[in-house]
Amino acid sequence: MKIFYFEFLKLRKKSRGWIGPILVFVLIMTAFPLTVEFLNEDLDQAFFSVLWIALMLVMMLATEDIFLEDYNDGSLEQLALKNQSLALILGTKIFIYWMLIGVPISFIGSFYGFGITRSFDLGLNILPILLVTSYIFLNVFSFGNALSLTKGSVLGTLITMPLVLPLLVVLGKVVISINIGLNYFGFLALLLGILSIIIVVIPLIISFIIRAHLE
């Protein structure tokens, strides 16, 4: 609980770290209708593609220096020496990022869904998908940034982007299901299944990588 509170305060104080990605997301979602002809059906068609890609890019941006500052100021080394599980601490850190960045973005995305498609149901239906997907993205990109900790975020992006691309295919299927009125809970269950594996495995892998960096 102490770690949770400490990490929360740290990220909250670093406003650039969490407000920045949210604002970028808002800017993308606001700017994209300017590139589409102002007919509602065109906007509807383009909306989801832009939403998923914007979500992915913003999560990538949010995790850009998730471990770098802690690595540079020696906090990661201190955490690694603690009796507590490093994986648990790192998992908590990712969870805090999700709470401060992923959750607001999911609500904003859902709001845009309602605003652009003018369908309240659709806006509501994509909310759980956005919440789950943003958490998956945060975990995967944190893994990439842990690997390329001292080598810049471009490398981290290059090595983790291919891992999340199959997820975009699933998201595309979700949108088709919602649009034609099919039950999309199967896909939501699939995403939850992926998430439940990822939130256990990724912090363990990241802790292994961080320890290797500190050696």
Partner: peptide
């Protein structure tokens, strides 16, 4: 995607001067 992954693996290993670290990270990825 597989092709891009192979390129990512090559880039990851080449970006580390320390071979032992590079080997570990490559294996994990």
């Amino acid at each position: 995607i597989l092709f891009i992954m192979y390129l990512g693996l090559i880039s990851l290993h080449d970006s580390f001067a320390n071979y032992e670290k590079a080997d570990k990270f490559l294996a994990v990825l």
